[in-house]
Design a protein around this nucleic acid. Structure first.
Length: 396
RNA sequence: GGGGGGGUUCCCGAGUGGUCAAAGGGGGCAGACUGUAAAUCUGUUGGCUGACGCCUUCGAGGGUUCGAAUCCUUCCCCCCCCA
């Protein structure tokens, strides 16, 4: 598949205007490819990687990623968010957050060829008059056409006017950065199209837009920080690897397409292999290794893979077991688990023991009241298969 | 401005004086099963205690009561409809 075709189809739900995009992407003149990033959450996750990888593909073809950090839109806050108490972030705080983001984004993009902008630069100084002019380009009926608005409207649920302003702000961003193309999840379609409308109003050629399917998270819903079902770019290698392995098998191919740079040909082969009986686990191991390699490098990925196989397939102990030092002496297993932070509370520790999930030196602990002695000899404590530590006595 | 409906444990949601740490579902955690998972089944899901039990929790404060998530009151917040 040629690069342009892949650009316009891989993981893509809609490409508008497809023909225009194809022509311009191939023409050679660098296009400005816009991607908005919300600075609120502390971590970027694999869902965010989807458009970033597409940006990278554009970058490889000589186009320029333009990242719009939504420090203004983020401050206004999403009206549907119940967490109304969320405080406004200062520009400094946003910049501090973004420094962390950039390191993560740098794993995917060549940061030497990226333009980074903050939308407070133009939205923050906009007058009410300008806002009114912007608003004039949309009718109420148009707004209510939007899927999630019409649905809520019909259900008699509240729609805040502020939500109507969102597309205007995001659309004006496109004017401000003179976007040729904007990327986003398919839940963003309306906002992306608003950009076209507003650009026309400002005498700019309308941007093309590309939308993606939503990446499913670890619990079946779309991946989102608020759902807590994310795989973070910054997760340590072992954890990232394990989380990928814990995805359900049906997600293997979508994940290959959306979250890795593995060639589509290879993905197609894997799909065929899976259909004809390949053990899904093998495919998932490849997937996990690819993902970890992207964020941590090949060596770390290999190590994570070995450890995973060791712990989960061979049921052995990992090579690296964290050591926890505690004051020496006797205590109940319940007290120990809480003290070593292997359980969040003593009550929870007690439940884990009763549920048969706790082992000391390889033996299941049967009684909550069992006493263990912390001394010079390290004690191997396991809670489930994932929480393991060696506990050793130490003064101070 | 008028009328109506709400705020419950991580989430959704039941509960209208004691049998409520609070149904049910989701999610989480643990166990079984699985050469990873998913699905399924089981257990568990506020804290402290070896245990009896005790403490904190049902928007916030005050009150009634032997006893309140449930009644009264003030306040805060949210939603819908009509104007």
């Amino acid at each position: 598949m040629n690069p342009i075709d892949e650009l316009l189809t891989r993981g893509v739900t809609q490409a508008i205007d497809q023909e225009n995009l194809r022509r311009r992407a191939a023409a050679g003149a660098p296009l400005r490819i816009k991607l908005g990033i919300d600075p609120t959450g502390p971590l970027l996750h694999l869902g965010r990687a989807v458009p970033l990888l597409k940006l990278r593909a554009f970058q490889d073809l000589g186009h320029l990623p333009v990242i719009v950090i939504g420090d203004f839109t983020g401050r206004i806050g999403d009206a549907s968010d119940k967490d109304a108490e969320r405080r406004m972030l200062s520009r400094e705080e946003v910049e501090a957050n973004m420094a962390g983001y950039m390191a993560q984004i740098g794993r995917i993009l060549d940061m030497d060829r990226v333009e980074v902008t903050y939308n407070s630069d133009w939205l923050g100084t906009m007058s009410f008059e300008e806002v009114a002019h912007l608003a004039n380009h949309f009718s109420v009926a148009e707004m209510l056409d939007r899927d999630n608005f019409s649905k809520r409207f019909q259900e008699g649920k509240r729609i805040s006017l502020r939500e109507f302003l969102y597309p205007l702000m995001q659309g004006y961003d496109s004017v401000a950065v003179r976007a040729d193309v904007e990327l986003g999840g398919n839940d963003q379609l309306f906002n992306l199209l608003a950009g076209r409308t507003i650009q026309r109003a400002y005498g700019q050629p309308p941007q093309d837009v590309i939308t993606f399917g939503m990446l499913e998270g670890t619990d079946g819903r779309k991946m989102s920080t608020t759902y807590g079902n994310i795989i973070a770019m910054a997760d340590p290698p072992e954890e990232q690897f394990g989380r990928v392995m814990r995805l359900k098998d049906e997600l293997i191919i979508p994940y290959f397409e959306l979250t890795t740079r593995v060639e589509l040909g290879r993905v197609t082969e894997l799909r065929a292999a899976l259909l004809s009986g390949m053990n899904p686990m093998e495919a998932k191991l490849v997937l996990a290794e690819e993902i970890v390699t992207l964020y941590h490098g090949l060596d770390q990925a290999r190590t994570a893979r070995e450890q995973f196989l060791k712990v989960f397939r061979q049921r052995e102990l990992p090579d690296e077991i964290p050591e926890i030092q505690l004051p020496p002496g006797d205590r109940t297993i319940q007290a120990l688990l809480a003290e070593a932070a292997l359980a969040p509370s003593r009550s929870e520790a007690g439940r884990l023991v009763r549920g048969g999930g706790v082992k000391v030196d390889g033996h299941v602990v049967a009684e909550v009241t069992q006493t263990v002695c912390i001394g010079a000899t390290p004690l191997l404590v396991q809670v489930g298969r994932r929480r393991i530590a060696r506990i050793i006595g130490s003064h101070g």
